[in-house]
Computed example of a mutant assay.
Amino acid sequence: MEKHAGLILPEPQISLKTLFEGALHPAWAWHFLTSSTISFPDIGPADQRSLDVLPEMFDGTISWEDLAWIRRIWDGPIALKGVTTVGQASQAVDHGLDAVIVSNHGGRQLDRLPATIDVLAEIVDAVGDRTEVLVDSGFRRGSDITTALALGAKAVLLGRAHLYGLAAAGEAGVRHCVDILSRELRMTMQLCAATSIAELDRSLVQRDSGAPAAHT
């Protein structure tokens, strides 16, 4: 596998477990063995949807100067995802971005990154009057959404919950997940005596000493 930015992606290893799994799923195994490339339908044109394009998607040379260039050629709204510090948020605002998304990408890249709920309030305090602050990573319940809104987030982004619903029951599953989150959000607001999103504030959030996350 090609070396990129100092890293080498591992080659897939075929083991006895792999062969056993393949025997349990013969149609998939046949398709895998007879396909020349592994296809990713949402990546690039049809003739380039394979593992070969993945190294190009992780460019370690991207810098703040690239954001300045994007801002010059694009007059629409731009949101920067992956912000976890006040410094990053401030630089994003200085480069003319319209929103920042407080996100550690689910903690998959570096498990020592702070939970986004732990850094949200200070980022809102630093730049919330100059740009919109959104948040994601680890939000699974309506009460989680309520907490983030109370801490100052303009919106909470969720993806995994919708994917679970999609995998289980297609479009109906996604609608069901949205309904669950909506009901939980409304119930939490009712228990907090908040009749609107605007009434959610930090007085409703209490942090246990030593606890890793805020609770509503």
Rank of each mutant, 00 (worst) to 15 (best):
M1E: 06
E2T: 07
H4L: 05
G6Y: 04
L7M: 11
P10G: 10
E11W: 08
E11T: 13
Q13D: 04
I14S: 09
L16D: 15
K17D: 06
T18A: 07
L19E: 04
E21L: 07
G22K: 09
A23S: 15
L24Y: 01
L24K: 14
H25F: 08
A27N: 14
S39L: 12
S39R: 15
P41I: 02
S50C: 12
L51W: 09
P55Q: 13
M57W: 05
F58L: 15
F58T: 10
T61D: 05
A68P: 00
I70V: 13
R72I: 02
I78K: 14
I78H: 13
L80T: 11
T85A: 05
V86K: 09
Q88P: 02
Q88R: 06
S90C: 03
A92M: 01
A92T: 00
D94Q: 15
G96C: 07
G96L: 03
A99K: 00
V100M: 03
I101N: 08
N104E: 03
H105D: 01
H105N: 05
G106P: 01
R108H: 05
R108W: 03
L110V: 00
D111T: 11
R112C: 12
L113Y: 13
T116P: 08
L120D: 12
I123Y: 11
I123A: 10
V124N: 10
V124A: 11
G128Q: 05
G128C: 04
T131Y: 12
L134W: 15
L134Y: 15
F139W: 08
R140Y: 02
I145D: 02
L149Q: 02
L149W: 05
L149V: 03
A150M: 12
L151V: 07
A153G: 07
A153W: 09
K154Y: 06
A155Y: 07
A155E: 06
L158T: 13
L158D: 10
G159L: 00
R160Q: 09
A161K: 08
L163C: 02
L163E: 09
Y164K: 08
A167T: 12
A168L: 04
G170T: 00
I180T: 14
I180N: 09
S182A: 12
M187Y: 07
T188L: 02
Q190L: 10
C192P: 01
S196T: 14
I197W: 02
E199F: 05
D201Q: 06
V205K: 10
R207H: 11
D208L: 15
A211T: 03
A213G: 07
H215I: 01
T216I: 11
